[in-house]
Amino acid sequence: MKQIELLFEKFLWNSRLIVLTAVIASLAAAIGLFYLTSVDVYHLVLHVTHYGDPNLTAEMRENIRAETVAHVVAAVDGYLLSTVMLIFALGLYELFISKIDAAEQSQGSSRVLFIRNLDDLKDRLAKVVLMILVVTFFERSVRMAFEGPLDLLYFAIGILLVSLALYFTHKSGGHAPGEKTESGH
């Protein structure tokens, strides 16, 4: 009976390796998003080179400027989403498979990629997702057409809510470097 129990426990422990599929898929998604966003930025730069054309009217220049700002914000959004997938892949690997020795040995590596527990992973992902929402809000606000005072009021309330979300996120993680909170980080 003890032999069956040991075999089952070994099988159970090794079943965590199924997480490798999520790690590889998340890493592939991150690479794909980095590629897509980089191609978009390349085409954006090509598009912006027309801005100096002396034949453009002021209205055409304004349209290029507005489109450029919107595309830059979309690029930031794409890179942030890529980062989410990368952090997620690294976090899952460290939590379920093994610590990444190369990351621990690297002196210049960022602390954002060190994941100690599931709460740590969720916290890092939540902050990046919040930044994606802020960038998306900004992107929509650039394209927004105000038709009356109520639209302006709604816009101001949106800015207030985004600001509060950023404030509380910063406040919740606002402990001194090296200081541990009750959750251990």
Rank of each mutant, 00 (worst) to 15 (best):
E59W: 04
G32F: 14
L125Q: 00
D101C: 00
V23D: 01
V45P: 01
Q3M: 12
S38V: 05
A22M: 00
T181R: 07
A145M: 09
F114H: 06
S141Q: 09
K2V: 11
E104L: 15
I97C: 02
E62F: 04
F88W: 14
L20Q: 03
L12Q: 07
T181W: 10
Y154P: 01
G78I: 07
L130D: 06
I31Q: 02
A145R: 06
L166I: 15
F96M: 04
G173A: 11
L125E: 05
A75D: 12
S38D: 11
V69I: 13
S26K: 04
I87T: 05
Y42H: 02
L118T: 09
V76M: 11
A165H: 08
F96W: 08
N117M: 05
S183P: 05
S163V: 10
Y154L: 14
N55E: 12
L46W: 10
K180R: 11
A74K: 05
L113V: 09
D151G: 01
S106D: 14
H175F: 13
M144N: 10
A145H: 09
A22C: 05
A30Q: 02
I115K: 01
M144D: 08
V135N: 04
R65L: 15
M1A: 12
S82M: 07
H185W: 14
N63V: 14
E104C: 05
F96V: 01
H185D: 11
T57S: 13
F137Y: 15
W13L: 09
T21F: 12
L121Q: 02
L160E: 10
L27S: 08
L153K: 03
V134K: 00
I115M: 01
A74C: 06
A30H: 01
